[in-house]
Design a binder for these strands. Structure first.
Lengths: 198, 198
DNA sequence: CCCTTTTGACTGACTAGTCAGTAAATACGA
DNA sequence: TCGTATTTACTGACTAGTCAGTCAAAAGGG
């Protein structure tokens, strides 16, 4: 029956995170003001400043919130069969546009701020390393089990992530459905010809 | 000897474009203010407003200036031998970081604003189409001459551009030299295995 | 003298962040 | 269990600063 002592507090934090998400989704990163977050939250800006001293602190917390959700989603891929696992992971990375397109846009904006914001940079680097590690591991397993060609797992993972990031960037900048389809096809070709080849 | 009537004016325009370039390079797109451009220009902000009514107008002109320079640089590749031409074009697209890194950063920032700025979006789309057309043409020639495999030129060009854009994004976000090296290797592999295969 | 160009002073809109005060919930003491 | 502190969560008014853009006046060359 013992409830964590900060149960109410963390509910508030979560509500602010969700408000930030909606404000970001609607107005983009450049248009993300404390006022807009407060509007989504349904309280005053001072209320948010009560929980987070600065905007920077709030955004750091928000990025943690967001990337953790992302990693949880990727983590749900449970197959151990290397080829199937690799394809499923890559499918997870190349998400459908639809509802998530606004977030894809906002994420690229935030990523483009990495050079000016150490907090952002650290978190994006850490997240990328995590995903790359997952890919390297599954590629390594595939090679051990003899179903994948003897490629360099690190280089192969980096190449696949480059294609994924390129597709995301192009989907945002060029507003093209095609970008993600191209990536899906390219990744499939790459898996077929480079990884499975022999 | 007839000089265009707006010779002085266009010299001023060019000076403002160069000032904008330096300001963008130094402060990034989010930190690009009229004051900073004026500082680089060595005149007051009102002086810039005399030549460009709004900041948006100035940035539209600047993007034209920038993309035209970019296309000129790519246009200098004159070889007609398909394989050599394709490799040289791709080398041009994956530029060295060094001096240009600040610009690469600013360009990603500007590209990430495309969803909110029709002017930007149009120009980036147009530029992308131009580059893609160059790639499609050279791939088409290669196929005709029998040196390239019978791939789909459009799909191949899109895939190559996806890798290039992914590399650029990763170089900015992750601050990695590796990103561009990975792209160079990936593009080479792709050209070797997919395009030249038979 | 006129026309282009430039300046300095200004405006209004918007920004993050501060602060005193308030109301309700919670803890504590007798 | 009743009354008194204390804490949590918040509001509304405010500050100080930044931004793009305006405008009357002035500089300066032809």
């Amino acid at each position: 029956m013992a409830e964590p002592p900060d149960r109410r507090t963390s509910e508030i934090d979560e509500a602010i995170m969700r408000a930030t998400y909606r404000a970001l989704h609607e107005h983009g990163y450049a248009g993300l003001t404390m006022q807009r977050i407060a509007d989504e939250y349904g309280k005053s800006t001072a209320a948010i400043h009560y929980h987070y001293d600065t905007k920077e602190e709030l955004l750091a917390a928000f990025l943690d919130f967001l990337l953790e959700r992302f990693r949880e989603a990727v983590h749900e891929v449970e197959t151990t069969d290397p080829e199937r696992r690799l394809r499923l992971l890559l499918d997870q990375l190349i998400v459908e546009p639809g509802d998530h397109h606004g977030l894809l846009v906002a994420m690229l904006e935030m990523r483009s701020q990495a050079p000016y914001n150490e907090t952002f940079r650290e978190r994006f680097q850490q997240n990328d390393e995590y995903i790359r590690y997952l890919l390297e591991t599954v590629i390594g397993h595939g090679i051990e089990e003899g179903v994948f060609a003897d490629v360099d797992p690190e280089h192969t993972a980096r190449t696949l992530l480059t294609v994924v990031d390129g597709a995301r960037t192009r989907a945002v900048v060029l507003d093209e459905q095609t970008a993600l389809e191209t990536a899906r096809a390219a990744v499939e070709e790459y898996v077929d010809t480079v990884v499975l080849a022999d």
